[in-house]
Design a protein around this nucleic acid. Sequence first.
DNA 1: AAATGAAAAAATCATTAGATTTTTCATTTT
DNA 2: AAAATGAAAAATCTAATGATTTTTTCATTT
Lengths: 201, 201
Amino acid sequence: MNFSGKIGSLGEKWGNAVAHHVGEDIRSLRKTRAMTLAQLAGAAGRSVGWLSQVERGRTTPSVRDLEQLADLLGVNISFFFRSSRRAPEEQGLVLRAADRPTIGSDESGLVEELLSPTLSGSFEMIRSVFAPGASSGDPRKARPTEDGGVLISGALTMWIGGTEVHLYPGDSFQFAGAPYAWRNDGSEPAVVIWVVSPPIY
Amino acid sequence: MNFSGKIGSLGEKWGNAVAHHVGEDIRSLRKTRAMTLAQLAGAAGRSVGWLSQVERGRTTPSVRDLEQLADLLGVNISFFFRSSRRAPEEQGLVLRAADRPTIGSDESGLVEELLSPTLSGSFEMIRSVFAPGASSGDPRKARPTEDGGVLISGALTMWIGGTEVHLYPGDSFQFAGAPYAWRNDGSEPAVVIWVVSPPIY
DNA sequence: AAATGAAAAAATCATTAGATTTTTCATTTT
DNA sequence: AAAATGAAAAATCTAATGATTTTTTCATTT
């Protein structure tokens, strides 16, 4: 079957897709951090009205302002430009492997990349790579989220709310609001496609 | 680090974990099909009170009854026993690769396996394999769900709400309530880890 | 022990009012 | 000309209420 609306054809107008997306990103990041317009605007030394307009793409923040906001939201400013080289139709819909931003995770031995092309969904997909020999610290406090995942490769031991399980490729798990910990006893990295709902990043 | 509560040790009491899980499964399946106790009980020729008790594990349905219910809910009766050989602590938390049930998907060229160990979560994880050369029919009507996925291997062309995208390994997508269609123009199966929220199975 | 039927309890749903947050927009500033 | 402000208007969120539906409980029968 043939689909219409093929993207990426030459002569496509690019528009100010980035400027528009930046606003949505800021809004989503602000929401997951439970901040109001007033709080973020205040911290950034700008007015509520201005931030509202920025988030809705009605006005464009200066690079200086964006840098400031990124800082307050705990992301690198480059995060906002992760898909800028892609066609506008694709933005927010697809995230190419090469564009995945590395996120959060101050833990060593764990690299997390965002798979979700949008931050405004009801869940978030993440690719986590657990280094051989690495482990989380103590079980982290339970988050008010539901987590799930599939082990793509390697092996991983997880401790979830009192139960220890050894995961092998293809095994999947899911739990809600339980504390958990992990440990990679294997000799190769463990790759997990992880799902969190609602989004936390 | 060492975790406590290791499972699978010998001498563990097995309990009636299956009977208990069956009830929860029935309830979840019934919910996703938007049926009330009265509707399902009526169709099964049983009382509301009885079904309520079955779903909460207070009473055990006969195999004949369970067969009947499975039929009305559109699943194979074996579905209820998918993790029965596993330790009870693991049930509802982990789903082993070998235990994954094949689900729905009347479409040829598409095999879907359930990854979620529980049906009562806020999202569902599915492993979809799209056969080489296969394609969906017309774009299916949009569901009131949010869908996302990652292409693990192979290549897949998707048409999502008017936009056609070519996906390669590692690419991810996410969309809410849009009609979509797919086509595998490649020569190898395309494997996608798919997420649907809320659960539809 | 399973199954029923009916009463009791609980959960769901639609309103509504109040409070908070966000948007709009006329005006000022850069 | 576009960015930024500040205040009014609109929209969103919360909590409470009552009506309705659904589910649970439980005494009784199969």
